[in-house]
Computed example of a mutant assay.
Amino acid sequence: MITRRQLLAASAALPIAGHVAAAAPASDVLRFVFSRPHDNPRTQWLIRVYTQLTSELGLGFDFVEVPPKRATAMVLTGEVDGELGRTFDYQLLYPSLVRVPEPNNAVRFAAYATRPGLRFDTWQALRAGGIQCEYRLGIVELEHMLLRELPARQVSTIATIAQGVKKLQLGRTDLYFDVEEAVSDYLYFLGAEQRKAASAMRQAGVLLATTGHAYLNSSRAALAGPMAVGLARLKRQGDVQRHLLASLAAYKARL
């Protein structure tokens, strides 16, 4: 868990990353998309990590901000070179993409509830109970799981975590599904009054524990190995954790 002391210590680290102007020719600049907005601290973290990583490989880096579904489409067509983070099994959904073997981080998909006693145990129990479930748009893994396991009438979508939390609080949905890390960040960065209002929400179960990886268009397949080796080295050096702390601290400071 990231502590306040760690955030403060990192606050003077790297400036907030944005579109990176690369000195290399366009063919030597890797263009990446991600399923979260540009100003999200986890996006900023991966931008920092992959800017360093591509630079050490003699390449430039550029981040392109588009909606999550558009992001995947752009990687598939080669309009951009890769996606900064998707789960290990994402390749099963899009087999033409090339997974960088070294993971960015651990990822858990979780269910959240405000109703006392409600838990995610089995899909069968959710079906039988007519439980109304919701997930955030752009999380393709959740979309496939929920629509595969539940009738369409029991599944809805929202655009932001804030909307998902609000609908739970209002009783308009029973379970909200998202990435545990994203929900934890959202709650951590809330103001005291907002955090108190959201205190009734609790984790009601974990659907899947996996790892997050960068993915490349097949035209860049040869880079997967060198990127994995470089990413593992950045982890050992402590750079990946340093970039995470700096990104979280910068976001906290902006709030």
Results as ranks from 00 to 15, higher is better:
Pro103Phe: 10
Tyr186Gly: 07
Ala159Ile: 09
Gly58Lys: 02
Ala192Cys: 08
Ala214Lys: 03
Gln91Gly: 06
Arg148Glu: 07
Ala106Gln: 12
Arg220Tyr: 14
Ala159Phe: 07
Thr210His: 05
Arg4Glu: 14
Tyr215Arg: 06
Leu126Pro: 04
Gly18Glu: 10
Thr211Ser: 11
Thr114Leu: 05
Glu65Lys: 01
Glu134His: 06
Val49Arg: 11
Arg172Cys: 13
Glu79Val: 10
Phe109Tyr: 14
Leu30Gly: 01
Gly117Trp: 02
Pro15Gly: 13
Ala73Lys: 11
Gly171Gln: 13
Leu150Lys: 13
Asp121Tyr: 10
Tyr50Met: 10
Ala228Leu: 15
Leu216Ala: 01
Ala192Ile: 08
Gly138Asp: 09
Leu92Lys: 09
Val33Trp: 04
Val206Trp: 01
Arg31Tyr: 01
Ala214His: 03
Val80Gly: 11
Met227Tyr: 00
Phe189Gln: 07
Asp81Met: 08
Phe109Ser: 08
Val165Leu: 14
Lys235Asn: 04
Val20Thr: 05
Ala232Met: 10
Gln241Ser: 04
Pro41Ala: 08
Ala113Pro: 01
Ala110Asp: 04
Glu149Ala: 07
Pro41Val: 12
Phe109Thr: 05
Glu56Lys: 15
Arg5Met: 09
Ala22Ile: 00
Phe177Gln: 04
Thr157Gln: 11
Ala222Asp: 07
Leu245Cys: 00
Met74Tyr: 05
Gln237Ile: 12
Gly85Glu: 14
Leu175Ala: 03
Thr210Ala: 09
Lys167Gly: 05
Pro68Lys: 01
Gln163Thr: 07
His213Ala: 10
Ala12Tyr: 13
Ile47Trp: 06
Gly85Lys: 14
Val98Cys: 12
Ala125Tyr: 04
Val240Trp: 07
Ile161Leu: 08
Ala23Gly: 00
Val75Phe: 04
Ile158Met: 14
Ala24Lys: 03
Leu57Ile: 01
Ala10Gln: 09
Leu190Pro: 09
Ser55Phe: 15
Tyr176Asn: 00
Leu216Arg: 02
Ser219Thr: 09
Pro68Cys: 01
Ala249Gly: 07
Thr173Asp: 15
Gln44Lys: 11
Ser199Gln: 13
Leu234Glu: 05
Ala222Gln: 10
Ile161Thr: 10
Ala71Ile: 04
Pro151Arg: 06
Gln132Phe: 15
Met145Ala: 15
Leu57Cys: 03
Ala106Arg: 10
Ser27Gln: 12
Gly138His: 06
Pro151Ile: 03
Ala128Thr: 10
Pro101Phe: 03
Leu231Asp: 08
Gln44Asp: 11
Met74Phe: 06
Val140Arg: 12
Glu56Leu: 05
Gln241Tyr: 13
Ala221Phe: 00
Ile158Val: 14
Asn40Val: 04
Ala71Ser: 15
Leu137Phe: 08
His213Thr: 03
Leu93Pro: 01
Gln91Lys: 12
Ala224His: 06
Leu150Val: 00
Arg172Pro: 01
Ala26Asn: 01
Gln194Trp: 12
Ala222Tyr: 12
Phe61Arg: 02
Gly18Ile: 02
Gly138Gln: 04
Gln44Arg: 14
Pro101Arg: 06
Pro151Leu: 02
Ala228Trp: 11
Leu142Val: 12
Gln163Arg: 13
Arg172Val: 03
Arg115His: 02
Arg148Gln: 08
Glu181His: 15
His243Leu: 06
Thr157Ser: 08
Leu59Gly: 02
Leu255Trp: 14
Asp81Pro: 00
Glu102Thr: 00
Leu175Phe: 01
Val80Cys: 08
Leu170Phe: 00
Ala24Asp: 01
Ile161Asp: 01
Arg233Gly: 10
